[in-house]
Design a protein around this nucleic acid. Sequence first.
DNA 1: CCATCTGCAAATTAAC
DNA 2: GTTAATTTGCAGATGG
Lengths: 96, 96, 96, 96
Amino acid sequence: MAKDQADISGGDNNHAVAADQLRAFVERIERMNEEKSAIVADIKEIYAEAKGTGFDSKVLRKLISARAKDVSALKEERAIIGLYAAALGMDEGIFG
Amino acid sequence: MAKDQADISGGDNNHAVAADQLRAFVERIERMNEEKSAIVADIKEIYAEAKGTGFDSKVLRKLISARAKDVSALKEERAIIGLYAAALGMDEGIFG
Amino acid sequence: MAKDQADISGGDNNHAVAADQLRAFVERIERMNEEKSAIVADIKEIYAEAKGTGFDSKVLRKLISARAKDVSALKEERAIIGLYAAALGMDEGIFG
Amino acid sequence: MAKDQADISGGDNNHAVAADQLRAFVERIERMNEEKSAIVADIKEIYAEAKGTGFDSKVLRKLISARAKDVSALKEERAIIGLYAAALGMDEGIFG
DNA sequence: CCATCTGCAAATTAAC
DNA sequence: GTTAATTTGCAGATGG
């Protein structure tokens, strides 16, 4: 077995070490997943609060996703310009 | 207009108030969305680190999602797929 | 068991009927999947041909996806306008 | 310019030729993309029909994707997950 | 409350 | 082999 390879195949003395490593990774990921779930719950709450204040949450969602898309659309546009510039042998740097 | 209803339509000065409220909600949600993205990126990093240590990240994901689910529900699902497979004369052993 | 429910649970005489139905659905889907794969392969071929003619396939892909996005962006825009119109109690029909 | 290179940059009359070629490639690809979309829609319809007949479409999807894969690879994967689960002291029964 | 549907995340797949 | 892109699958949200 390569030395940079975790051993979980059992039978020999590296077993425990790999199991501990595995457990550590699993715990870290599960901890982060919990944090993520908490944030998702918070976001849901804010939408509910907005709804209670009279805002249509569907419209609000569209608005926010539209704003997010504007940003990614801008990046996309620059990427396309860069590609065409490269295709034409231009210096892409001039676009910032 | 009901007093608990945000004003986003009228022709009076409540416009500004509703607009401020809306802006506040949008900012709060976008802030939380950024936090969520950061966490998702962190999780991705941990998987990468685990992979670098020799663990199979695909297997790791399946393991973690299995831990998040109810054991009896998992067994139940497998049993149903097994029934379908049997109806087709497939090797039922392959499901897990 | 409800009469509109496929029986794959075994043991009784509806077993064979449901198995035949299941097999038919599986075969239809797998047939369509094959067609889809053939089309995907064809598309790949066209890109290769374009590349052989001197076109940068990466640029070509960007061009085509940008054209596709223009169409969906228009639909999205109309959907948003419709939502706002509805929120304001307007007749959406006037937008076409 | 090499003679097998499409001209999308020069200042001469080959412009028109390259533009026509490009247009032709774009049209062919977009045509195929439409066909692909039609097939995808058809597949979706079949799943809906199967669901209407009482089959669980989620299970059906898993079944079909399993059929598309190599059986020994699937068994191998399950065995590895079992090893990981054992390292964590989980109930391995849910994987096998 | 269920069933449909959109939107997001993950897994596969292709390109380099 | 590794990153990037497409596609599939899932979960959450909305409307009946």
